[in-house]
């Protein structure tokens, strides 16, 4: 259990004065991850995206830790190079501190355009924590669909019209793909569970190898809800089992939050304008399909938890 009073004594590594939207979940994720990391030297690499653009508008940077950005699709590769430099300079004695490395990427920079460099970095087993702040669309360029966009959701390139009813495909399960890299630590978390995210970050940073945390990030602009509810929406995703919170440590699954009662998906869909059209009677079939996918995935996770811990 994380002690917030103790945590508050650490230096704040992300200052205010950045230009993320009011109520932005990415700001919450970045802050909580950096809170967890602030007890040791860390270097941060960032993919192009909302977080990068909004926090480093020249001449103002919100980052108090060493921070680096070069392009969109290569955050994991850049961080690979930074970590390789660390190994080399440590060997030659130019660096003597223990430094940890964190990479941030949105779902565009992680699931899609940065997928290859992420996969490569994980396979090469660089010691880095990769955090995906997953807002399920390309928010920085104006809410275009990504492979993380869920079935039925509106996005500006999977719009709702007379013929099409939002995104027609189910989302990619990147967390599973990361598990398939056989790296020591893979986890899902969500905004709304500070204790979970901070604990997972600390755990990941202590592991000598590549680690990956996929954090669901409600986006007030792209998802269309009241900005004050960013954490509430995140919790709703977990309570409906739309976004289960779990971790896979050396191949063993652990579901960190098991809702006492799985809420129906409509409760998650209702407050978000990206799903508004799904609540119309003619789209009930899509909602049923979403629910079916959730139920199957949840059953699969429970099974994985059971059989990997036997």
């Amino acid at each position: 259990m994380v002690n917030l009073k103790e945590l508050s004594k650490r230096p704040e590594l992300l200052s205010g004065g950045h230009r993320l939207c009011s109520g932005c979940g990415a700001g919450i994720i970045a802050r909580q991850v950096m809170m967890a990391a602030a007890d040791r030297p860390v270097v941060v690499a960032n993919a192009t995206g909302c977080l990068e653009v909004s926090t480093t508008i020249y001449p103002f940077s919100a980052w108090k830790a060493p921070w680096f950005h070069s392009a969109f699709e290569n955050a994991a590769a850049s961080c690979s190079g930074i970590e390789a430099a660390y190994k080399a300079l440590k060997r030659t004695g130019k660096v003597n501190k223990d430094i940890r490395f964190i990479t941030f990427g949105g779902d565009g920079g992680t699931y899609d355009i940065g997928f290859q460099s992420l996969s490569g970095a994980m396979e090469r087993r660089h010691r880095m924590l990769y955090v995906c702040y997953n807002n399920e669309a390309y928010m920085n360029t104006g809410i275009q669909r990504s492979s993380a966009t869920p079935l039925g959701a509106y996005a500006s390139t999977s719009p709702v019209g007379k013929v099409k009813k939002g995104k027609e495909q189910i989302k990619k399960d990147l967390t599973k793909v990361m598990v398939a890299h056989n790296i020591p630590y893979v986890a899902q978390s969500a905004v709304g569970y500070w204790n979970d995210l901070i604990t997972k970050t600390q755990k990941a940073l202590d592991i000598d190898g590549p680690t990956f945390i996929n954090v669901l990030q409600p986006c007030r602009l792209g998802w269309g809800y009241n900005p004050a509810d960013t954490a509430v929406i995140g919790r709703m995703a977990v309570e409906t089992c739309f976004w289960p919170i779990y971790e896979v440590v050396d191949g063993k699954y652990k579901i960190n939050v098991k809702p006492k009662e799985k809420k129906p998906i409509e409760e998650y869909l209702k407050p978000q304008s990206r799903f508004k059209h799904l609540l119309r009677p003619e789209n009930a079939g899509i909602v049923a399909e979403i629910q079916k996918n959730i139920d199957e995935n949840w059953a699969w996770l429970l099974m994985m938890e059971e059989c990997t811990n036997r």
């Binding site: 205010g16 004065g17 009011s22 109520g23 700001g27 500070w194 960013t230 954490a231």
Partner: peptide, 29 residues
């Protein structure tokens, strides 16, 4: 403090001590 996206909650000696209105964007979280 832990949920503020704008680092705008002022904590002194582990106690909430008000807001930094220079940075607070008023999201209401």
């Amino acid at each position: 403090w832990v949920y503020c996206p704008d680092s705008a909650v002022v904590v002194k000696d582990s106690l909430m001590a008000g807001f930094n209105y220079k940075h607070c964007k008023g999201c209401g979280i």
